[in-house]
Design a protein around this nucleic acid. Structure first.
Length: 119
RNA sequence: AACGUGGACCGGGUGAUCGCUUUCGCCGAAAGGCGGGAGAGGAAAGUCCGAGCUCCAAAGAGCAGCGUAGCGGCUAACGGCCGCCCGCCGAAAGGCGCGGAUAAGAGCCACAGAGACGAGUCUUCUCUCCGAAAGGUGAGAAGGGUGAAACGCGGCAAUCUCUACGCGGAGCAAGACCAAAUAGGUCCCGAUCAAGGCGCGGCUCGCGCCUGUUGAAUUUCAUCAGCAUCGGGACGGGUAAGGUCGCAUGAUCCCGCCAGCAAUGACGGGACAAGAUAGAUGAUCGCCUCAUCCUGCUUUCGGGCAGGAUAAGACAAAACUCGGCUUACAGGUUCACGUGAAAA
RNA sequence: GCCCGCGUAGCUCAAUUGGCAGAGCAGGACACUCUUAAUGUCAAGGUUCCAAGUUCGAUUCUUGGCGCGGGCA
């Protein structure tokens, strides 16, 4: 059995096509510096992708950290979310100052609430 | 000890819970599950050099072009490293240096200055000659001023050039295989035999390769047209960041010993150490020691103690692989060396 | 990942054997006008992306950084 808080490859959004579809057709919710795109898929479970702009955030280490923290926030809360969506988290602008997990998680939860994803 | 100089090394440790990538074993028809192992750096960075490797059919010579530049050595190779010489900086330990060209030539040296590189003379003095004198001709010497440089076989070759040596081009998104899907394209230009064309990604030589077929119309040449082939260009359609390999045992790392001033090499023994592809190393909570800042107390004014805060806190993360260089970097460990001034 | 190109006034760009950094637009002041626009005149505006080096002298040449833009299946 899969553990409740695991996040295997199957749940990752991978294809460029899927990302394009989310941007184009999905509903968009923003709160600096994060943006959430949500579109229904017909798979019965969620797939999630994280996009961090390399143009505005130069340091690879910083980009990696933002992705990991977002992934962690998703992993911890995935059981409280409604299923059957493709979700993309996009970070376009470089947030000022150090990146804190607690801070990102707050924004994450707020956006998830606004996107009507919380069960 | 203080200040300084040059190397070498580290740049958290440990425990718990959840999670990721990969590999091995077991279970399972499969999806997957369980257990064990492994999992970022000294710069992984910039992409500045040098290689391996792959493709361009094959990769020759000369020229052009590009690169390097004291001498010698090391190396697979290098623009790297080591030793020595020279120049400059430093009191010293040391540091820095695109550090060839007196042989052939071209170009430039603004402004200022009389004059800026073989053309001449602004001022003064001496001598000679002409002249009554003022002054002038010629020769020599010195000085002032300008300027970076003032007559000297000037300076600039990080201006062309010359000399010596080296260099074919592109790059793992190279390239190979497999699968699926659609199409089995359209248009333009050139070539198709005795002299041409194409290739050797710049040119020449040299070398190699190619030149089929039908018809107009008849033996050949030449010309034209069709088909076919080859080369180049433009457009259209389809699929899409598809999968596997390349892809990690290597100029590898560690230890010992020998040769060498050294870089480095030989020998012996041991080790196997990330492999992702929207891109794996993370999150939370403890403890330990370190650092920085703030507050308070204390002091022999160097510091010490207590509490609190800060993301163990700097620079920053593999993307075919190595050897270097360069740049960024909180803090710490260690070895060797120097000592002028100031302070003690 | 690899390979290219570009940084000059607020903006768009010039500047060659290395020798006083300029043009157009925008902005400012003045004139003209009842007022505005247009037009004319005037002045201002620069660490030539940064730092070293060569040179008497660097936007230009050399080296190293920083920033920006593009291409490659």
């Amino acid at each position: 059995m899969t553990h409740a808080e695991s996040f295997p490859k199957r749940e990752h959004l991978v294809k460029t096509k899927d990302f394009r579809r989310a941007y184009k057709e999905g509903a968009c919710f923003k709160k600096e510096p994060l943006a959430l795109y949500r579109v229904a898929n017909n798979l019965g479970e969620n797939r999630v992708g994280f996009a961090v702009s390399a143009r505005s955030i130069k340091l690879a280490a910083r980009r990696n950290r933002i992705k990991r923290l977002l992934r962690e926030a998703y992993r911890k809360t995935k059981n409280e979310l409604r299923q059957g969506f493709d979700i993309v988290f996009s970070v376009r602008k470089n947030p000022a100052g150090p990146i804190k997990y607690e801070h990102l998680k707050k924004i994450f939860l707020e956006l998830a609430g606004r996107a009507d994803l919380l069960a």
